[in-house]
Simulated scan of single mutants.
Amino acid sequence: MTRALITGVTGQDGSYLAELLLSKGYEVHGVTRDADEAVTTGVIAHELDLATDSAIAELIATVEPNEIYNLAALSSVYQSWQSPALTARLNGAVVAEMLAAVKVIHDRGKTDIRFVQASSAEIFGVPTESPQNEQTTVRPTSPYGAAKAYAHGLVGAYRTAGVAASSVILYNHESPRRPETFVTRKITAAAARISLGLQDTLELGNVDARRDWGWAPDYVDALVRTAQHLFADDFVIATGVSHSVREFVAAAFARAGVDDWQDRVRISDTLLRSGDAPLQSGDASKARQLLDWSPTLDFDGIVSAMVDHDLALLS
């Protein structure tokens, strides 16, 4: 039985990944921050606060997984400006500890571990080209992006040293499991509440920013395909189609049956983010060719699934 270890197992991606691996017959271990976190049924949970505890190497040595998926991170660019040291720890230093532990096992000739790092389009900052691919210059413009860029570089370094480590550069990917701290879920939840008369307005920042939005289960599938690929490598995972936040709002309100959405949205300067890229668009040609990966749900389908979920919650 193939054994996998997932950090960030209780998050959006972690929960989808756990379900996918369990359906494939894996023995799945997951790292949780505390005992109160809800873990997917069937996952063997290990309580470990990666922000303060350096025992991840010991856990890897104990579990000896065949595959490691590192999804744990401080996931908000905005919060990374408020907590840069914590961001550096969770999004960077922890990756160094994990890769060092994997290399120790590799050098001993024991379990062959495939390491998959969930990287981010934020490593490109304000991109020098569009769409971006695996060769695009890494030039982060936030503490979040800088920490992810460090981890991305570590993966390449350890791969050169013989570790089967891959970095998967994930563009924005959404689902009903997103918390409302993310702008997409904030929008769909507000659209549902406004349609039912439970909320009057929605406050947003830069509605002109354009993002390449995909479906989270598709992106989790790409992580598994990367782990199972013959050679460790870096892959951009994206749809190649960008939409503005304004378009996301329009689609969400239309799905919820609200026609006057322009009158419901308020723009707040306090929600504007420093270093925010005006446009992100990824070229996943390499993943399509080598991993036989492609997205299954388009932009409208993603927005509709999220709004329908939020409407169902309220009803």
Rank of each mutant, 00 (worst) to 15 (best):
G240F: 06
E247S: 12
D212R: 03
A250K: 15
H243P: 04
D233W: 04
D212C: 07
W215K: 06
A252V: 09
D218K: 03
D234S: 06
D260K: 10
A254N: 07
A254F: 01
A238V: 11
D212I: 13
Q228F: 09
V245Y: 12
Q228V: 06
D218V: 09
D259R: 10
F231M: 11
L223A: 06
S244Y: 12
V224R: 03
V245E: 09
W215C: 01
H229F: 07
P217K: 04
D233M: 09
H243V: 10
V220Y: 12
A250P: 08
R246N: 13
A252E: 02
Y219E: 07
V220N: 06
W213N: 11
A209G: 14
H229E: 06
T239L: 05
T239F: 05
A254V: 02
D259E: 15
R225W: 07
A222V: 12
T226F: 04
F231R: 10
V236I: 15
F231I: 09
V245C: 11
R255L: 01
A216Y: 04
S242H: 14
A254M: 04
H243C: 09
E247T: 09
H229I: 05
D260M: 11
V224P: 03
L230D: 14
I237H: 08
L223T: 01
T226A: 15
R225Y: 09
W215I: 06
V220Q: 09
G214C: 01
G257F: 08
V249P: 07
R255H: 07
D221C: 05
G240P: 03
F248D: 08
I237V: 15
R246D: 13
A256P: 02
I237S: 05
H229L: 07
Y219D: 03
S242N: 13
Y219Q: 02
H243S: 05
A222F: 11
V245W: 12
A227Q: 03
Q228T: 13
S244L: 12
R210Y: 12
F231T: 11
A222I: 08
Q228M: 13
A232Y: 03
T239R: 07
V249I: 15
A256K: 01
A232R: 00
D221T: 08
F253A: 12
G240Y: 01
L230T: 13
Q262H: 13
D259V: 13
Y219P: 02
A251Q: 14
A238F: 04
D234V: 11
W215M: 04
L230R: 14
A256M: 01
D212A: 00
A238P: 04
Q228I: 03
V220C: 08
W213F: 15
H229V: 06
G214E: 00
Q228E: 15
G257N: 02
D234H: 09
R210V: 14
H243Y: 15
D233G: 05
Y219A: 00
R211L: 13
F235L: 05
A251E: 14
A227H: 11
A252P: 07
A250G: 10
R211G: 02
P217I: 02
A232N: 05
